[in-house]
């Protein structure tokens, strides 16, 4: 099952705040039907951010939600040269992973997101995404390291 396609990669994500950035990332899920209710999904993500910002040390932001607006577990990858404040103590996030899970989805679906989350802790994985030159390369890395691993 594919988690990400080239249209779900934004290599020049530059917005003044994380909510606008999240919207831009989420919009990529609407075109191919992965997200059927953008506003619902965005409000679910926002709820999660309000509980506790999802920025992590090392310039990472992982906005995420389980939402009725989502049909397929999906990843949207965004890279920001200037960084966007994601609430982490050590500075803005340059690598942003928007993780979308359907409400209730089966274990198999959620297991792949679990695998992705574990990968995010690997420096080499993050570095290779940081270095990727094209969207195709990002998709290839995720497919190789997460989906088919």
């Amino acid at each position: 099952m594919s988690l990400i396609s080239e249209s779900q990669v934004i290599l020049d994500l530059d917005y003044p705040d994380r909510h606008q950035a999240t919207r831009a990332l989420a919009e990529t899920l609407v075109a191919d039907g992965r997200c059927t209710d953008l506003d619902l999904f965005l409000s679910d993500v926002r709820k999660r951010e309000e509980q506790m910002a999802t920025g992590l040390p090392g310039g990472i932001g992982i906005p995420h939600a389980r939402s009725g607006g989502i049909t397929t577990p999906s990843l949207v990858f965004g890279r920001s040269r200037n960084g966007i404040d994601w609430g982490a103590e050590d500075g803005p996030a340059t690598l942003i992973f928007l993780i979308a899970a359907p409400d209730g989805g089966g274990d198999a679906h959620l297991a792949i997101l679990a695998k992705l989350a574990r990968k995010l802790m690997r420096k080499d994985f993050r570095q290779s995404l940081s270095d990727a030159a094209t969207a195709a390369e990002v998709v290839e890395i995720v497919e190789r390291e997460v989906v088919n691993a």
Binding site: I62, H64, R66, I99, L113, A117
Partner: peptide
């Protein structure tokens, strides 16, 4: 974690 899809596994 609250959502159970990211922080838990990280």
């Amino acid at each position: 974690c609250p959502t159970g899809i990211a922080h838990t596994y990280m």
